[in-house]
């Protein structure tokens, strides 16, 4: 189905219980694997206003959900706002997938960008049955409303913030993320986020400890972050250890930039 507007897309998706389709790089292999293709797809149109492109505004930097990963990586505003993105993008899928895959698809699939967006306290614009509304990305991924269509994601003006991100995959390139960890300092506090095999989310308890204690001992960080990761769904102790170590490494990097 090729809806004429985002509202119609939402209506089609709800009426026919049909999935949205953008780049298809994530969904297609899933369907192929299951040998179960949906009868209907709702094709999203990158020509709809606000759905594609990168825009600097009073809120910060807004990226259309149908912007391809490659477009985002090459955009001139990306470097000043998101300096670590270029390095990270080299580790996101392969060139062919980056040409097709979209920012929205990556966020929805729990891809690498999610940790960075969460750490930057991103907000999302969603098209629903009643129009467009904004909410925090962290809240939205916790309880997404079925059928809501992601129009764009906005990160605050983070130019000058020390931001660091690290991906752990199975191999050097073209690997699903095992864990992507992001760390940002907004001038007042450190924000930490993670996505990957154990799930995605902000590490708010660890952030609070950092806020209260300044630079904690490694042992404290390991204990608190380890517990928080476990509560989030990171059951593999070995992977938790890796995430804790990466967190500690990124914190040092970010603190050096403060």
């Amino acid at each position: 189905m090729r809806p004429e507007s985002p509202r119609q897309a939402v209506s089609f998706a709800k009426r026919f219980r049909a999935p949205y389709m953008a780049g298809g790089t994530w969904l297609q292999p899933v369907w192929e694997r299951d040998r179960c293709w949906p009868g209907r797809l709702v094709m999203l149109n990158p020509g709809w206003p606000g759905f594609r492109g990168v825009d600097e505004n009073s809120e910060g930097l807004t990226v259309g959900a149908l912007t391809t990963l490659d477009e985002l990586a090459r955009h001139p505003l990306t470097d000043p706002y998101l300096p670590p993105l270029k390095g990270l993008m080299n580790h996101v899928a392969g060139p062919g997938v980056r040409h097709l895959g979209t920012v929205g698809g990556n966020l929805l699939a729990g891809g690498d960008l999610l940790a960075l967006a969460l750490a930057l306290n991103a907000t999302v614009d969603l098209v629903g049955g009643k129009g467009v509304n904004s909410e925090s990305l962290a809240e939205w991924i916790r309880e997404p409303s079925p059928g809501d269509l992601l129009r764009s994601v906005t990160v605050p003006d983070c130019q000058g913030w020390p931001v660091a991100v690290e991906k752990l995959g199975h191999r050097e390139r073209f690997s699903p993320t095992r864990a992507t960890v992001a760390c940002a300092h907004d001038g007042r506090q450190v924000r930490l986020a993670v996505c990957g095999e154990g799930g995605a989310g902000r590490l708010v308890v660890t952030e609070a400890m950092l806020r209260d204690q300044g630079v904690p001992g490694l042992k404290d960080l390991a204990t608190v972050a380890g517990s928080e990761l476990q509560a989030l769904g990171w059951r593999d102790a070995r992977l938790r250890l890796a995430v804790r170590r990466i967190l500690s490494f990124l914190l040092e990097e970010v603190n050096r930039g403060v």
Partner: peptide
């Protein structure tokens, strides 16, 4: 499939 069974890529 080769998205789960991971062979080395050029960067490896």
């Amino acid at each position: 499939n080769l998205d789960q069974y991971l062979i080395p890529v050029f960067h490896d």
